[in-house]
């Protein structure tokens, strides 16, 4: 494989100082290549969320380097990280994080507003994204009128609308029942097959089964990293 899309070089993230010092990440090195579907697992406090935040350019490492697409981005400015998120990353959260009292279509439009796309194009692309996640016909629905699974689909459509290299999913099925969870996972797998790299944090083994690679964090270090031949 060529240059990895995501590379951690001895990354540490330290909260607090002195006695109260907490090493959420302790010298982690790992690489994720383009096109992978990575599941990150680990007990709470193991550093998996911190790793996710750093990958998502929401947080930065206290020490070590974070390279995105071969470029060191760990220490760039807040605005530069916002631009990275805008152009390369899409987020899916456990709590869906949709704008309330805002239609599904407008939610999906949001990232494209910041990308500066003209309204007509935004609407076309937002409709296409909603159709892709199986929500054609529900463009005008507000989050409160949609089920949890549907809300998560809107969130995935929103992540897709930004045309990202990577989708970062933080416990995407945490608030859903098994049936809906599987639907969401199948959707993510389908997107992965189209070439989008997916990094997902989960604590459900069933869901991790869908990924092509499993990384387990314990106490701020990678304790297990295995690739599977084929996904479910």
């Amino acid at each position: 494989m060529d240059a990895p899309l995501i590379e951690f070089r001895n990354v540490s993230r330290i909260y607090g100082e002195g006695e109260a010092e907490v090493r959420a990440l302790d010298g982690v090195s790992l690489t994720i290549a383009e096109g992978e579907f990575v599941a990150i697992m680990g007990p709470s406090g193991s550093g998996k969320s911190t790793a996710m935040n750093i990958i998502g350019c929401l947080d930065r490492p206290s020490a070590g380097d974070y390279l995105f697409n071969g470029v060191e981005v760990g220490q760039v400015s807040q605005d530069a990280r916002a631009l990275l998120r805008r152009h390369y990353l899409g987020f899916v959260f456990q709590g869906f994080n949709l704008l309330s009292r805002t239609s599904a279509l407008e939610n999906v439009e949001l990232p494209m507003i910041y990308k500066g796309l003209p309204r007509a194009e935004r609407l076309v692309r937002a409709r296409a994204a909603l159709e892709k996640v199986g929500l054609a016909g529900r463009e005008a629905h507000q989050p409160s009128q949609l089920s949890g699974g549907q809300q998560q689909r809107v969130a995935i459509a929103r992540a897709l609308a930004g045309d990202p290299l990577v989708i970062l999913a933080d416990e995407p099925t945490g608030n859903l029942d098994t049936h809906r969870s599987r639907e969401i996972m199948e959707l993510l797998v389908a997107l992965n097959r189209e070439g989008i790299t997916i990094v997902m944090v989960t604590h459900e083994e069933d869901m991790a089964e869908f990924a092509t690679r499993l990384i387990v964090f314990v106490d701020g270090r990678v304790s297990k990293d295995e690739r599977k031949a084929g996904a479910a």
Partner: peptide, 12 residues
């Protein structure tokens, strides 16, 4: 938070 995560700068 949502706006920031989809790429809004703090200026925006």
């Amino acid at each position: 938070g949502i706006r920031l995560s989809v790429g809004a700068t703090s200026g925006q």
